[in-house]
Design a protein around this nucleic acid. Sequence first.
DNA 1: TCCCAGGGCTTGT
DNA 2: ACAAGCCATGGG
Length: 245
Amino acid sequence: MVAGRLVRAETAGENLIFNDMDADFFLRNTAHYFDLETDYRTVLSGFSSDAVLEASLRFAPGIRVLNQPPFEALISFIISANNNISRIISIVDRLCERYGERFEAHGQTFSAFPKPEALAEARLDDLRACGTGYRAGYIIGASKAVAEGMDLDALRTRPYLEARETLTELPGVGNKVADCVLLYALGFKNAFPMDVWVKRIVHEIYGFSSRKDADVREFAAEKFGENAGIAQQYLFYYAKANKLR
DNA sequence: TCCCAGGGCTTGT
DNA sequence: ACAAGCCATGGG
């Protein structure tokens, strides 16, 4: 889904071809969703060279940090807490089917990600039936805050620390989830989400000793700079795909 | 059966 | 400020 529309893409050799849209929709919406206005060659060449990061870049050179819809990212990453990716995906799918608006595209019926109002009014038991577990209350609480006027998009222009602290006032949102929303939805390329895999890389591969989040964050900022979040995405995918432990 | 998963919250020191 | 327990759920 890009800007409320289903978008199909196909690979053709080195190219990615987007169908069913004119140039205006592509430039206004699709390009931003896939972060095409960021020149990744420049970003990646700006990282200080080291073996682990270079292996990560070689392993999956086409990775992009998406610009997802903020509310969708917020709820998805609240669900991600102490959870695994396959479960997260299936839970989000069930939320779409249960609470999202239906729409037709290419002769098929799809369900959009739910609006804040829909999840704010959800019943706890119904949310739990979607597999959310103890996070059901967090989902309702965060959705109510957004439905009642909290402007996630307005955080784009705030300083990083202020935006993060605003997000962590929401139930189920700590520093890690906040960093994910900032990086994957609000354009903060310096946000550095520290999940178990990234911590593993920092400690066991880079050999950084301190386990304190503030220290790891400083290490990342020092090592990767203003685009640390992009480095994080490459490292995360590489470590997880290769089960580096 | 136990352990783990893109953590956060609460309580105790 | 910091550490330890707890939390729903399902796959390995």
